[in-house]
Design a binder for these strands. Structure first.
Lengths: 332, 332
DNA sequence: CTGAAAGCGCTTACAG
DNA sequence: CTGAAAGCGCTTACAG
């Protein structure tokens, strides 16, 4: 154990047995007699032999490694989805490499190019904002042309023929809006910091559809993370509002704060529905009604889809929808 | 591009030049003439040649990959530290593999064993709770004996001789406590959901020291994540409290909520100091005074330390302390 | 300036 | 049942 792991070659000279025999014995091949198997396995254990994964990978062309390419991990949705992915993968003999794109197309492309050749067997990806805007998807199709499996989750590109795990963003927002309308809210405002993303657009459309169906005119406030609170506050100062739907964690906290500083009661004067983790929802005042995306389940589904795809080398990828549900708490 | 990446061998038969020459040309060796270099590089580009990292790794014994082994990513400290690690690493030619231990010693050991042989060049680790309790550190020392570099951050084991990045947990809590005492708070309660971790113990000791120095008796409420709110509320019902220090995000939100539901004003009746991300602190009502751990900087420092260690193969590892600072906002 | 050969650590037909 | 040989895709002394 002085400096580096023992190899089959070293084991071979210790035992006076050929490298092939040792390899077979350690892989429990039926070709080897029980007696020698026993000797070899014992000696391997004694020296804490660990097969060199890199060599195995080179030989087999499989690395048992999956890349998870996501924009960020500071967002509770991705953090929890990653947890779901990792939980399933760690039950298999695969490993995961996590790469954060920070919404940069260049970084996403580089990641795919770097890992496509020999490093990973497949990719789980939530497509970054810039890629969605540029509509340049060559890195995905190239990886697939090179025999890698690809599964997209949440941030999905319809025109790329890969596995997909999505949520029902459109109808979840319709339903949430309808629920507010059903409890007599009329001036329902949508606060979005993710209007540039496809998921944001889908959610917005779901809201618009429900509003128009009820004969109300939609009001959409768009802002970046930093200014959501200010934008909301300003709107509250000059308009009557009796409900807010916020499309991510930042917007949700900002909405709660804006209503409170405006001296309105939640939910009496203004109902609030947001997107935050369950744990956080319980610790807010009042406890926040949320659209629950089941991020853990989404991650789990994406992971099981890619493992399946790699194992079966199947080409026809399927599409799974994990429905979001409305968790009604005290804020609505 | 039909099925899998092109190799040097294929390039060799296309160009009618030996594999060695191609390898040298692509690595810009001075041995090769500019003319052939040009030809080779152009053809490689045309066929989108990407060197097989696995083969390079096997040959060189270096993989340019670093494992980041952390308990979780659902905690804003680790999420942001990971962001700091990733940001620095992505500027280098290293990659990171992220492994989540979920506080399980077995998982941590397995991760180190799996990756120690050939897969990674080094480890950045925040030691899991169970390992701290069991005090079994063989997986760390074995990895180091196998020539891998190890850097611990935040969750650190004093007796293991590796690189370390920590924060001044003890003195940060002393100072926060003193600040509360300085503004005439007398009944200061500590709310902890991390009392089993070394960092939790250090923070608690810092609080105790400051309280005792001022002649006050410390009050420490311990709970798991789920019940912090209930524990805090119960205490508030039967005791007089004029300040709370909460040791992580869950405890911080729970403390705010408990005070509000107890119909006390923040900070007039009860001051609150907590541990949450800056972004979240701004979106809470009132804006929360926090002990800011500079998690991004800690991650960055750990990453730069391991890159340095791997590049120089130096054995004497250093220790860096990133000081936490008190960010005073409206809650105190 | 170019190429043949050895080798990184493994696995697996193929011989014996 | 055991072992010699080839090969995964690369790099790098060593010859020419």
């Amino acid at each position: 154990m002085a400096g580096s792991n023992i190899t089959l070659k070293q084991l071979s000279s210790i035992l006076g047995v050929s490298i092939s025999t040792i390899s077979k014995a350690l892989n429990d091949s039926h070709e080897i007699s029980d007696a020698t198997k026993k000797r070899i396995v014992e000696m391997a254990k004694l020296h804490n032999y660990q097969p060199n994964k890199i060599a195995v990978g080179l030989k087999s062309g499989k690395t048992n490694t999956i890349a998870v390419v996501i924009p960020s991990v500071q967002n509770s949705f991705f953090a929890r989805a990653l947890y779901g992915i990792e939980s399933l993968i760690s039950e298999t003999n695969f490993n995961i490499i996590v790469c954060l794109t920070k919404e940069s197309h260049a970084k996403e492309v580089e990641t795919f190019n770097m890992l496509s050749n020999g490093v990973v067997d497949g990719f789980i990806v939530a497509v970054c904002e810039e890629t969605q805007n540029l509509q340049n998807y060559d890195h995905f199709t190239n990886a697939m042309a090179n025999g890698k499996s690809v599964v997209m989750f949440d941030r999905v590109i319809d025109s790329v023929n890969c596995g997909k795990v999505t949520t029902n963003d459109f109808s979840a927002l319709s339903e949430a809006t309808q629920a507010l309308i059903g409890s007599d809210r009329k001036h329902i405002v949508l606060l979005s910091t993710i209007h540039k993303l496809n998921v944001g657009k889908l959610r917005t459309q779901g809201y618009i559809k429900a509003m128009e169906a009820a004969g109300f005119s939609p009001t959409i406030l768009e802002s970046d993370d930093q200014h959501a609170g200010a934008v909301m506050t300003e709107y509250l100062n000059t308009n009557s509002v009796d409900a807010i739907i916020a499309l991510d964690t930042d917007a949700s906290l900002a909405a709660l704060k804006a209503v409170k500083t405006n001296n309105k009661q939640i939910p009496k004067d203004v109902a609030v529905i947001g997107y935050v983790s369950e744990r956080m929802a319980h610790n807010l005042t009042p406890e926040l009604t949320t659209i629950n995306q089941h991020s853990y389940t989404i991650g789990n589904a994406a992971a099981s889809m890619i493992v399946e795809a790699i194992r079966t080398k199947s080409k026809d990828m399927n599409q799974v929808v994990i429905s979001s549900t409305l968790s009604v708490r005290d804020s609505s």
